[in-house]
């Protein structure tokens, strides 16, 4: 029996049917590079945290079973206190521990950068509350330096807020800014906790002091460590009166209107710190020692309690000393101080 040769496959002229060794090497290298790229992306993805928008959320509703739900958290901030959102959706968060920076995150929760007042060290500054002006500048109160600093949207230091009236107040030791907010017209609202002078100062967009109201005390219209504040569409000024355990509302002239009181009943407050208002007349109050965010309907003359968001704890949708709140783009942002994160909630 003679051997029969197997027929050879035909191919185009000039091409061999077998891949040369160098080509195989190239393919292997390409595959390896692709794998490496995927691994690298994955590593960076894990390092930077998952984008807020891609997380399904824990679907934790408010305790009343309605309204906002917990969505996600941004970690990597040391005992955060204040939070604000810029016009482009970037989130600014102040830290009261660690490096005590103001950290910037993109709308998906990726860290972008951080900033601090020039010529300061970590233990020489305490950024607390923060607000973004209609022009996009970022205003940050610094408790260590009794300063209200102004930064660009990217975190470049622009100036200290220091108009003539503020310089005079400084001279007499009566400038200790705490909370800060803007209204839609660009007026600047500042809570001041100078000794025996707890009050609210209102500056017009040019920086001229146009209104001062309140004094230290416990009566209606007085304050005991006022913290955050916010202005609603009707021009009413809502002030977290921290140590008095209440939120007080004032008209645009500083006249007392109403208050949400301290107590144990549903909707009562314990130690309110941050406040924010959405576009639907909802007032959000970070009740720091109650470990909840309380939601009120303020469309009428008197606020109506709607629901609690969250409860005490370390899990999803739980808080340990929430402090600052901001509302933007349908999202509620809450600094969760002792849990070292910023939570986002939305409908």
């Amino acid at each position: 029996m003679t051997a029969t040769a197997w027929p050879q496959p035909e191919g185009p002229p000039g091409r061999t049917s077998r891949m040369p060794g160098w080509a195989k090497l190239v393919v292997v290298l390409i595959v390896l590079a692709a794998l490496g790229w995927v691994v690298l992306l994955g590593t960076q993805y894990l390092k930077t945290g998952k984008p807020i928008s891609e997380l399904p959320g824990a679907q934790i509703p408010g305790l009343a079973g309605q309204g906002e739900q917990y969505r996600s958290s941004v970690f990597g901030v040391a005992q955060p206190l204040g939070v604000a959102v810029g016009r482009d959706g970037r989130m600014y968060v102040t830290e009261s521990a660690g490096q005590r920076m103001v950290r910037i995150f993109d709308p998906q929760g990726h860290p972008l950068s951080s900033f601090a007042p020039p010529n300061t060290t970590a233990n020489g500054r305490v950024p607390v509350y923060i607000a973004v002006s209609p022009q996009g500048d970022v205003y940050v109160t610094d408790r260590a330096n009794d300063a209200l600093d102004v930064f660009s949207a990217d975190g470049a230091f622009l100036r200290a807020f220091d108009p003539a009236e503020v310089r005079l107040l400084r001279l007499v030791g009566a400038w200790h800014p705490m909370g800060v907010a803007f209204d839609k017209d660009g007026n600047l609202y500042v809570t001041d906790v100078s000794a025996d002078k707890h009050r609210v100062l209102v500056f017009d967009p040019s920086g001229t002091l146009k209104l001062t109201f309140g004094s230290q005390g416990t009566d209606e219209g007085k304050f005991w460590y006022p913290n955050g504040l916010a202005v609603d569409d009707r021009g009413r000024i809502w002030v977290a009166d921290g140590n008095n355990g209440r939120v007080q509302a004032f008209d645009a002239h500083g006249k007392f209107l109403t208050a949400i009181a301290r107590g144990f009943a549903k909707g009562d407050l314990a130690m309110p710190r941050g406040v924010a208002i959405d576009g639907n007349n909802h007032l959000f109050v970070a009740d720091t020692s109650a470990h909840t965010v309380k939601v009120y309907d303020i469309s009428g003359d008197r606020p109506e309690f709607l629901r609690d968001l969250g409860e005490a704890g370390t899990g999803d949708g739980q808080f340990r000393f929430p402090n600052g709140v901001a509302f933007s783009g349908g999202r509620l942002y809450v600094t969760d101080r002792e849990n070292g994160r910023v939570q986002t909630w939305s409908d």
Partner: peptide, 27 residues
């Protein structure tokens, strides 16, 4: 409502949000 150190620091921490006495930074 929470452990004492965290609770006390709510007022007496670096932000001194409820007291002028900041026992964390000694100021």
């Amino acid at each position: 409502v929470q452990d004492q150190a965290s609770l006390c620091a709510s007022c007496h921490g670096p932000a001194a949000a409820g007291s002028s006495l900041d026992v964390i930074d000694g100021t």
